[in-house]
């Protein structure tokens, strides 16, 4: 996983729960990286899962809500990265369709062999977008948070539902968005 996610996550935890919680969590997890992350590097996916599981215990929040809140928190950063690659994004669906490519570039420039999650889209109607998320990292709630953050950014109300989910044993997540 790209270091930027770890760095962003540490900032989110520090802001919401305090630096102590983050440092405690790192102290209590045996991490190969020792909790030292550079945004530009790629780190083991398991480290994120270990940290967020520990943080769920320390904060009393669920992993899902931590992921979702972090997604919303992280959106502006992702948007700023996206704007480096895409000149003009005017609405939520445009952003979501472009984001796959943004993630792809950001990961690949750190390591061109690194694994990237895949997003596939289907837009049966102009106000409906279905996203199929395929990733071994099972970060679909983070994706949901990003979507909510994006909707807020573009000042669009959106209903988000998952008809299939990797976390529930399905082969992929199907996220249905309706504006």
């Amino acid at each position: 996983m790209k270091g930027a996610i770890f760095v962003g996550f540490s900032a989110f935890i520090e802001e919401k729960y305090g630096l102590a919680v983050w440092v405690t969590a790192l102290d209590q997890c045996e991490l190969k990286s020792n909790g030292v992350y550079l945004s530009t590097e790629i780190y083991d996916d398991n480290e994120f899962e270990t940290i967020i599981t520990k943080l769920a215990t320390l904060t009393g929040s669920s992993i899902e809500s931590l992921q979702r809140d972090f997604g919303q928190y992280f959106f502006p950063q992702l948007m700023s990265i996206a704007l480096k690659h895409i000149e003009k994004i005017t609405n939520l669906f445009e952003f979501l369709i472009a984001v796959d490519n943004v993630i792809h570039i950001e990961v690949k420039k750190a390591d061109h062999l690194a694994y990237t999650p895949t997003l596939f889209y289907d837009q049966p109607k102009s106000n409906v977008l279905i996203m199929r998320y395929v990733s071994k990292r099972k970060m679909c709630y983070f994706a949901e948070g990003l979507i909510l953050g994006a909707a807020q950014h573009f000042n669009q109300s959106v209903s988000v539902s998952q008809t299939q989910c990797l976390c529930k044993g399905d082969d992929h997540c199907l996220i249905r968005l309706e504006t």
Binding site: V7, L38, S39, T40, I105, K108, K109, A110, H112
Partner: peptide
Amino acid sequence: AKRVLEDKLDAKAQVNFDQNKDIL
């Protein structure tokens, strides 16, 4: 300082990526 360093690394990575982008 870390952010500055990361930005520099990122810029270099971007240059490398852009150079190989067509091939990739």
